[in-house]
């Protein structure tokens, strides 16, 4: 097992087939892998199964056939909490992943819940709030801010945990060109640290600019460009 871990592969998808209850087959026999430090883009028309694929690689959904391995371990055997320690996952609809009364608490949640000292949490939160230009919104409710602000709060609350891999479902929704550029820079700075990134997106410019590798889904199948 050790060999697998020391290799460069982070997520391995082996012959995965998936359909929702009573739905037609959404993904058929998908086999691929994602490396540390790699920036991959997942594209495809609406309804082609990108979000579904992302959720399979995060363990939110499980495959009907085939398996997903994270760092060489079958994802079925890893708890969601443990996956969360490694993989940062951004929901396509960020409102779904926010559950704290204020922006500040939202971003600091994992750290303060696990008992880190107030000063350390505050320091980390402030740093990341600056990185995502969320100053002034610390005490606002995550429900009562703009769409793009909410997007950045969701991103910030993932990045503060320093995950070793990122799966971001439509990260540029609601972001203006300035913030999009900031996100590009940030993601680019993570790559050399060995952090792998999968971005699901319809934003052609963003992908062309950043991705090392583009995988297209359609008709339930993968097509590497």
């Amino acid at each position: 097992m050790k060999e697998v871990c020391s290799s460069n592969t982070f997520i391995e998808v082996n012959n995965v087939t998936f359909s929702y209850k009573k739905s037609e087959i959404i993904l058929k026999n998908i086999t691929t892998s994602f490396d540390k430090g790699e920036f991959a883009a997942l594209i495809g028309p609406n309804g082609s199964g990108k979000t579904t694929f992302g959720k399979l690689m995060t363990g939110i959904l499980s495959a009907n056939e085939g398996s997903v391995f994270v760092e060489g371990k079958n994802i079925e055997e890893i708890s969601l909490g443990n996956i969360g320690k490694k993989i940062g996952y951004l929901f396509q609809q960020p409102a779904r992943q926010l559950f704290n009364p204020t922006v500040k608490e939202e971003i600091g949640f994992a750290h303060s819940f696990m008992g880190k000292s107030k000063e350390i949490v505050e320091q980390k939160v402030n740093k990341i709030i600056e990185e995502f230009s969320l100053q002034g919104l610390e005490d606002a409710s995550p429900y009562r801010i703009s769409r793009g602000e909410r997007q950045r709060v969701a991103l910030a609350s993932i990045f503060i945990n320093e995950p070793s891999f990122l799966i971001l479902d439509e990260p540029t929704t609601g972001l203006d060109i300035v913030r999009k550029e900031q996100l590009s820079q940030l993601l680019k700075s993570l790559q050399p640290q060995g952090i792998g990134i999968i971005v699901i997106s319809h934003d052609k410019d963003f992908i062309n600019k950043n991705a090392d590798r583009v995988i297209e889904l359609y008709g339930g199948e993968q097509h590497e460009a």
Partner: peptide, 24 residues
């Protein structure tokens, strides 16, 4: 559904439910 999503999201922040004390 929203409560369920929140539960997923909480775990994905790296909180391992089965390793927590009862109060947590």
């Amino acid at each position: 559904q929203e409560a369920k999503d929140a539960f997923t999201a909480i775990q994905l922040r790296g909180i391992e439910i089965d390793k927590l004390s009862l109060t947590k």
